[in-house]
Amino acid sequence: MDCIEVRNHLLDLGRGTLSGELHERVDSHLEGCAACRGEDAADRELSAALRDRLPKRRAPDALRRSIEARLTGEPPRASRGMGRTWGVSLVAAAAFAAAAVVALLLWRPHDSDAMLAEAVNDHLRVLYSDHPVEIESGGIHQVKPWFTGRLDFAPVVAFGGDDDFPLEGGAVAYFLDRKAATFIFKRRLHVITLFVFRAEGLPWPALATQPLGGARGTLETSRGFHVLTWRKGDLGYALVSDVDPTDLQMLAVKVAGGV
């Protein structure tokens, strides 16, 4: 087995899907070939980078509703730019727009569940990631400038961590259909993730009862994780962790209080 053939199997080797005999032949080659061992290590690192650092985007809700309407035979919406195949008349488009507004109003209460699910899923990605932080913390004044050029907004977070809630670092992630600044704090051995994102257009919960200094938030629980969300100005915030809710609120007050 030569190097070219071996390199075609490195991905399967890394995934543990090589069959017995082939596995042995590839292993045997790697033992005697430093170049292919280097390729194997680099290939595994590439897999980790692609898996952990590419955003796990979801289709925007509006797109989902539009496609779903098409599949169920309802009138399609007009699309922008390239997708001009729908060709709806103005009258039909107007009627559909009115229906869409009604549908949107009816839909919102259920969409806030999507925000809750997204916050927990994004937090789980942080927990399972081999590289949860892209910029390690040397303090908030090192982390915040790192986001410049990586986001289309400036995350407003004054709290830079303390002994109770040390700031581990930051990363760029996706929250539903938009980019989010991710700050990772610790509380003893627990990880707390703070997502900061543009608030506009999201289906925020109707009731925000938790006092958070300069804001009011909503505390919800899903799959054993507590999620505290609030909005301030143009920005939205979501804190997620399995710590006690009072700890989460304490951190939220620190973050929101400086906002």
Partner: peptide
């Protein structure tokens, strides 16, 4: 519809823009 998110992710990577990705996915389903 089960493939919508995956289609959108790939479309987003191909086009490099959110709005173009949406259009490409619309086009795909059409």
């Amino acid at each position: 519809l089960e493939h919508l998110d995956a289609l959108y992710r790939v479309a987003r990577s191909l086009t490099g823009r959110d709005d173009d990705a949406e259009d490409l996915v619309q086009e795909t389903y059409a």
